[in-house]
Design a protein around this nucleic acid. Structure first.
Lengths: 203, 203
DNA sequence: CTTTGTCTTGACCATCCGGTAAAATCGACG
DNA sequence: CGTCGATTTTACCGGATGGTCAAGACAAAG
């Protein structure tokens, strides 16, 4: 069943993965029930288990489907572009993802909080390599005087943290700001651009 | 049983709360089992349930014990101090908390991810009021030209996000950096000070 | 239409888990 | 020491949940 062989299989596996993303991200792995995922996918539990053998398998599938999209914004950081604009654009892409794919962000957050039992290998492998590569780019920008001399790793962490915060801590942000439609994403993006480029100290 | 009447009660309730903090923060509410908390506290499950009537009650107790400590760093932001130093000091305090009390941070993160079912009233009440008050202070600093004109709410979010990231995403940070003892907290603090004060654009 | 493999369902099982009951043990105080 | 309330333990219950099974419904190909 690893490679979908029929149209129905492809459709249903996709529907299940979408439903599972919602449920897992909102309830955590343990809090999500197979029944809840099945109901959200519009099918019975045994039917769902016809497509995925175990709850774990569903979870792993969801994680896998996410990974590429998740790292795409960092991958797109372009050595050849203008450094300041590249970083501003990276911030924007990440804020957009927090706005448009909050469930994905929360799923990752849940996995991290538990110690990444299903992703530790990816973190230490592909992710680490990608970050190292981009850190090199950032360091070169620093050396060329295009941006300030800062630790590129912690810069990347700060970009992740500030942008994903709008998805992961959405309740808190909304509680503090009051309900603002989606204005918080726009205002947050503007603030972050200013923060990352110019900081707080008056010039 | 709300107010401990004996020495043993006070001791055991404290031991249970400490154990529960560890288990809840690592596994999430649903992932934590009463048995696991009891074992970690060094007692049997029925014994634990002699001190707290339900799993929910344990969880609420843990949240309550945390709240004051959690908001203390923001409360300490002093209108009368030097703005730049006040913000730098706030960053430092928050980074220290991420290093010294990561379980607390992760517990909050778990609660936020689920939509804060047990804290939404606090968020919309005390927290919101406190943030509003401090936002006013920050805005006054901006108006006086002591710091740049930025949205004070999003500034506070950014401080929370960047500092708590070192607790909540600890696995990821360690996977990317390799094991570094606790150097990441020192380096992170230095980076954040520079980021928040001066930004990335070369001067 | 019929056949054959795909898909779906209802009934069911075993385990985990939150919580209870009641008896046994402990410990502070007279 | 003896008493009595505080504490702890053993045994247990019922519902939730992950997963199975066997039979039925369905779709595609001849």
């Amino acid at each position: 069943m690893n490679a979908p062989r029929t149209r129905i299989q492809a459709e249903n596996r996709a529907r299940i993965a979408a439903a599972a993303l919602d449920v897992f991200s909102a309830e955590g792995f343990r809090g999500a029930t197979v029944d809840a995922i099945a109901e959200r996918a519009g099918m019975s539990k045994p039917n769902l288990l016809y497509y995925f053998p175990t709850k774990d398998a569903i979870y792993r599938e969801v994680l896998e489907r996410l990974l590429d999209d998740w790292l795409a914004p960092l991958r797109a950081l372009d050595e050849a572009g203008d450094p300041v604009q590249e970083i501003a654009a990276y911030l924007d892409r990440k804020i957009e993802m927090a706005r448009d794919f909050p469930a994905e962000s929360r799923l990752f957050a849940n996995e991290m909080l538990r110690g990444a039992p299903n992703m530790i290998d990816v973190l230490q492998g592909d992710l680490r390599a990608l970050v190292r590569e981009k850190a090199k780019v950032i360091r070169a920008w620093s050396a060329a005087g295009k941006i300030a001399r800062v630790d590129p790793y912690h810069l990347i962490f700060a970009i992740w943290a500030t942008t994903q915060h709008y998805a992961d801590y959405d309740v808190q942000v909304r509680a503090v700001l009051g309900d603002d439609g989606e204005g918080r994403f726009h205002d947050g993006a503007a603030f972050l651009r200013k923060l990352f480029l110019d900081g707080l100290r008056p010039r």
